[in-house]
Design a protein around this nucleic acid. Structure first.
Lengths: 119, 119
DNA sequence: TAAATAATTCAACTATCATTGAAATATGGA
DNA sequence: TCCATATTTCAATGATAGTTGAATTATTTA
């Protein structure tokens, strides 16, 4: 992941409402959540929610699909994975910043773990 | 790490200048870098740099110590570690978003991720 | 087709953020 | 002490970000 992309993702998550939304999406898994349901869960007003969902989508952290008159949003795990890798690679300088460092894997040069589906 | 703290850390990193500064500090390791050296490395003007360094310190991502007439800044790795743990715990739904998941070592700081909301 | 529901867009407003240059505060050395 | 260096503070400015409510678009159902 490039620095620019990482910053976009970080900025997307660095906000109360959006982090709450994203956490809800993560909990929901690949099935995702309708926008209205997210509004219920988080208490964010629809128009504000729409703004934040666009922000998350733009950052590549959420996907959306139309389902009848609902729009279902879901977390994009690859991007989150990419972000964690970026932070581990570039912001930990080979130091034990992550539990992974406790394992005998080399800390600084980690390749992305491709993982789309939650258990 | 609490959500509020995580957001502060995310916000601190979600900015070109600050991410560049933090990466430089990480590369420098515990020895750290004088403010002026950071200014040289990143091209950020002193007063602007000072603003961003305060921001990073406030977020717990940097420490500072006086050395003669220099002020040496260094990365605070524990906070970065805590942030990565937070993101892994709360934003990956118990899924292996990070290489750490590959090792079956130590759950360490991880709490079980409870799944409350059905799809 | 008309009404109801789901979501997004828009404009207006306020608040916060980032940068700049000048001034202030150390600290070390001549 | 005086001067140069290192860094921070401050005020002013322009740029972004987040919220709100009304209007709009799209889809389903009657």
């Amino acid at each position: 992941m490039e620095t620019k992309t990482a910053i976009t993702a970080l900025a997307a998550l660095a906000q109360d409402s959006r982090l709450a939304i994203f956490r809800a999406l993560v909990q929901a898994g690949p099935a995702g959540l309708a926008a209205g349901r997210i509004s219920e869960l988080t208490g964010i007003a629809p128009s504000s929610l729409s703004f934040h969902l666009k922000e998350l989508s733009h950052a590549g952290l959420a996907d959306s699909r139309q389902d009848g008159r609902f729009v279902i949003y879901s977390a994009r795990f690859e991007t989150m994975n990419g972000l964690l890798d970026y932070l581990t690679d570039n912001c930990c300088g080979g130091n034990p910043c992550t539990p992974a460092a406790k394992c005998a894997v080399k800390p600084a040069t980690r390749k992305p773990v491709s993982r789309k589906e939650p258990a």
